[in-house]
Write a protein that binds this DNA or RNA. Structure first.
Length: 570
RNA sequence: CGGGGCGUAGCGCAGCCUGGUUAGCGCGCCUGCCUUGGGAGCAGGAGGCCGCAGGUUCGAAUCCUGCCGCCCCGACCA
């Protein structure tokens, strides 16, 4: 492609709307332009990068035995009502009515549609397993779109769905995807970790998120420094903290704590550590109040709570909700004589003689002991893990790091197939629901993550497999016949050899060409200029290493053609 | 949904508080000259319903009200 022909509007200045580096660079490098909040047009250069990712995804999905199809973006509400998600999905699902007043929605995901296809077409165990995928635009009406392509409302996603006869076979399908995903992200040149994720009601270790490690990530992940363990913060299991206190139980005692509601204030007033206090948090679990006990210096992990209670949603109660449920103002809530359901973090049960609210305004209780003074309906791991906790697998030291979720694989089981009556006949003639799995990759987000991980102060540094063009040839003086002829012949030969090359043939000053070349981030830059006119010398520069070598034109041709043959470039 | 900020030329901004010439500046764009190894220089030029609607006023980019859009932060640790 010739730079003089391509639609590639680069920007010298950074638009004010862009916060994170990938967003800034993508705007400056002419990848995309915003149409409205969280919705972008992909311009040729950005689209080319997206296509690179798609191609890798296709190759690896096909290699893993999946087949591509394409499903509609507009979906009838009826289908969503079958699984109950039309009501449950929440405002992220964009709903609308067509001219006949039929309720419809824009697909944020396609479990319903794919399950509908399969239940109509497949009826025998002989047809299984099957894994179908698509690369398609999704729409989710995000509460707050941000960071450009990182969290848009409209985005390109690869989603795959597997159908199997049994849990065992579904797990095999799952593992195939796990391996395929590792290959995909490795081929994209990304530094990533596969982490155990929240698998919700399904349980088991059949949900992994693929996280690109980058500071701007929206998720926190826990990584063991000693072993392979890595998990999403939401899922990271806290090991039970030892045998527990052996202190003698002291007599329960009520004490006045006027106006002291927060943990810090109570602790300071009573002269104790937060670790000697147990706080009582009221949550609304699908609308019903539940009190949760955790140590004063700990934080409740809402996802763990949600899973324990087997509810769709938990939300910290506001002051009014908490008061309505308990009759006690927040700050003085406690487990002793609690008016509502009570669940406790496992750590609390190991403590002795701690402080809690007294269920009475301006009062706390001293020397509270579990078992003697209160019973919890359930005891479980309910708190957020910290770096002070040990690795749940090997006991090693943990580190927290930020990650960008680029892929998620999930064993669904039979929840969708049962609700939608998607069944097949097994060997014995029995009707069984399909065992399903789903596997997503945020294709457009992969591009953003790649830039987030690969850039410098001058611009993008594309991992070779994602680069829209592998090299840019700078013709520094299009008016000079010798220089132009050399640049053109090089462009022609490399193109003929199958290399994607950009020829900067614009009538611009050299400085502008160098700056654009750096910004656009193509792996190699070849400069044909004054030194060629005088001595036949051209320069080959590596964008990533900054390494630059001067050589004769013919030498350079040999060198690059060798790289192409080696497949190090394509 | 709550809080904050912003909307003035394609982009980045000033002007608004304290109403009053022809609404400015930088970048970009067009024409010409000149220049050609890190976003040059000179000269000329095009481009604005000052987000939209209403109000106050002799007079509104500027003050008031409403609406729309965009960005950022937060969404509750008792």
């Amino acid at each position: 492609m010739r730079y003089s022909q391509i639609f590639l509007p680069t920007l010298k200045e950074t638009p004010a709307e862009a916060e994170v580096i990938s967003h800034r660079l993508m705007l400056r490098a002419g990848f995309m332009r915003k149409l409205t909040s969280g919705v972008y047009s992909y311009l040729p250069y950005g689209l080319a990068a997206i296509r690179r990712v798609e191609q890798i995804v296709r190759e690896e999905m096909n290699r893993a035995g999946a087949q591509e199809l394409l499903m509609p973006m507009v979906q009838p509400a009826d289908l969503w009502k079958e699984t109950g998600r039309y009501e449950k999905y929440g405002p992220e699902l964009l709903r609308f009515k067509d001219r006949h007043d039929r309720e419809s929605c824009l697909g944020p995901t396609h479990e319903e549609v794919i399950t509908d296809i399969i239940r109509r077409e497949l009826h025998s165990y002989r047809d299984l397993p099957v894994n179908l995928y698509q690369i398609q635009t999704k729409f989710r009406d995000e509460i707050r779109p941000r960071f450009g392509l990182m969290r848009g409302r409209e985005f390109i996603m690869k989603d795959a769905y597997s159908f199997d006869v049994s849990d065992e076979q579904a797990e095999t399908s799952y593992m195939k995807m796990y391996e395929a995903y590792k290959r995909i992200f490795s081929r994209c040149g990304l530094t990533f970790r596969a982490v155990q994720a929240d698998s919700g009601a399904i349980g088991g270790n059949f949900s992994h998120e693929f996280m690109v490690l980058a500071k701007t990530g929206e998720d926190t992940i826990v990584v063991c420094t000693a072993c392979e363990y890595a998990a999403n913060m939401e899922k990271a299991e806290v090991k039970t903290a030892g045998p527990g206190s052996t202190e003698e139980m002291a007599a329960l005692k009520k004490t006045e704590t006027p106006g002291k509601r927060k943990v810090d204030a109570v602790c300071e007033f009573l002269g104790i550590e937060a670790a000697r206090l147990v706080k009582t948090m009221v949550y609304m679990a699908d609308g019903n109040p539940v009190a949760v006990l955790v140590r004063g210096d700990r934080e409740v992990e809402e996802v763990k709570l949600k899973n324990l209670l087997k509810v769709a949603d938990v939300d910290l109660a506001d002051d009014k909700q908490a008061f309505d449920a308990t009759g006690v103002p927040t700050g003085y809530l406690g487990p002793v004589g609690s008016a509502i359901r009570l669940v406790a973090d496992q750590e609390v049960m190991l403590m002795r003689n701690f402080v809690t609210g007294a269920n009475e305004k301006n009062h706390h209780l001293l020397n509270v002991n579990p078992g003697r003074d209160f019973q919890a309906e359930a005891v479980a791991d309910l708190r957020k893990i910290t770096t002070d906790d040990a690795c749940p697998v090997c006991g090693g030291r943990l580190e927290l790091t930020e990650g960008i979720e680029v892929g998620h694989i999930f064993k669904l089981g039979t929840s969708y197939s049962e609700k939608m009556q998607a069944v097949f006949q097994d060997k014995d003639g029995l009707e069984k629901p399909f065992v399903m799995g789903c596997y997503g990759i945020g294709v457009s987000r992969v591009v953003a993550a790649a830039i987030e991980q690969n850039h410098d102060e001058n611009g993008i540094i594309f991992p070779v497999p994602l680069a829209p063009y592998k090299a840019v040839i700078l013709n520094l003086d299009p008016k000079d016949e010798k220089i132009t002829e050399a640049a053109e012949s090089l462009y022609a030969e490399l193109s003929l050899a199958g290399m994607d090359v950009l020829l900067d043939d614009r009538d611009e000053r050299p400085g502008a060409k160098f700056k654009d070349a750096d910004l656009l981030g193509m792996p190699f830059r070849i400069t044909v200029g004054k030194k060629f006119a005088s001595g036949g010398i051209v320069e080959l520069r590596n964008r990533k290493t900054g390494e630059s070598t001067e050589m004769l034109l013919d030498q350079l041709k040999v060198e690059l053609l060798a790289k192409i043959a080696d497949a190090t470039v394509n």
